[in-house]
């Protein structure tokens, strides 16, 4: 079974080094565009967006010596398809009360239809009037259903709708990589 799609009908599009380099580059880009870390805050979308946000913040601390706070956001209550899905477990949002005047970098693992991002922007509004909202994703897989784009992209990966993109991270999955799965039961393709 040494075909492009192996035993699990999946193939790897980023390995651990690719992931590390992509996140390092995004960290630099965030610093460059924002001219440092003043008023900057990272908001990760559960689950893997939070992990990626933490890594970006660690990188920035390494490169710049300053700490960018990381908060977590659960968007389940802002989705436009609550009645279409089995209720997903909701995790507590940790966002501090007021983000007014802050520059928020939203962080997610996969950008897909854009609906999660729309929901997260609705949610952010309830925490104050951010000066600016930027978006960082590890993978942009296309198929947008809304007029959205990411400011920072780890890798553009063209996909078909039958495929699912699975980002795996050491903290949650024991390994760092990105794989494309054909019509499996991936749980991570709804970026």
């Amino acid at each position: 079974m040494k075909r492009a799609f192996g035993v699990m009908n999946q193939h790897k599009v980023m390995n651990d080094q690719d992931v590390r380099r992509a996140l390092a580059r995004i960290s630099h880009e965030i610093l460059e565009r924002n001219k440092g870390t003043d008023d900057l805050i990272m908001v990760g979308l559960y689950t893997r967006g939070v992990t990626i946000a933490q890594r970006l913040s660690e990188n920035i601390q390494k490169f710049e010596g300053t700490i960018v706070p990381v908060e977590s956001l659960d968007i389940s209550l802002y989705r436009d398809d609550v009645q279409l899905r089995i209720a997903q477990p909701i995790k507590p949002t940790t966002l501090a009360a007021d983000i007014s005047g802050m520059k928020v970098v939203l962080v997610d693992d996969v950008l897909f239809t854009g609906r999660s991002i729309r929901a997260s922007m609705d949610s952010l509004q309830d925490f104050g009037r951010a000066k600016e909202i930027q978006l960082a994703v590890l993978v942009d897989r296309g198929h947008r259903e809304l007029p959205l784009r990411a400011d920072y992209v780890g890798k553009n990966i063209p996909t078909s709708l039958e495929e699912q993109v699975r980002v795996r991270l050491i903290e949650t999955d024991g390994t760092d990589d990105v794989v494309i799965v054909r019509s499996g039961d991936g749980n991570n393709s709804n970026g």
Binding site: L77, I90, P92, T93, D126, F127
Partner: peptide, 16 residues
């Protein structure tokens, strides 16, 4: 637990 976080917000309203 997750819902109590919503209760502690300044704007206690979500569109779910």
């Amino acid at each position: 637990d997750a819902m109590s976080e919503v209760l502690r917000r300044d704007i206690k309203k979500v569109p779910a």
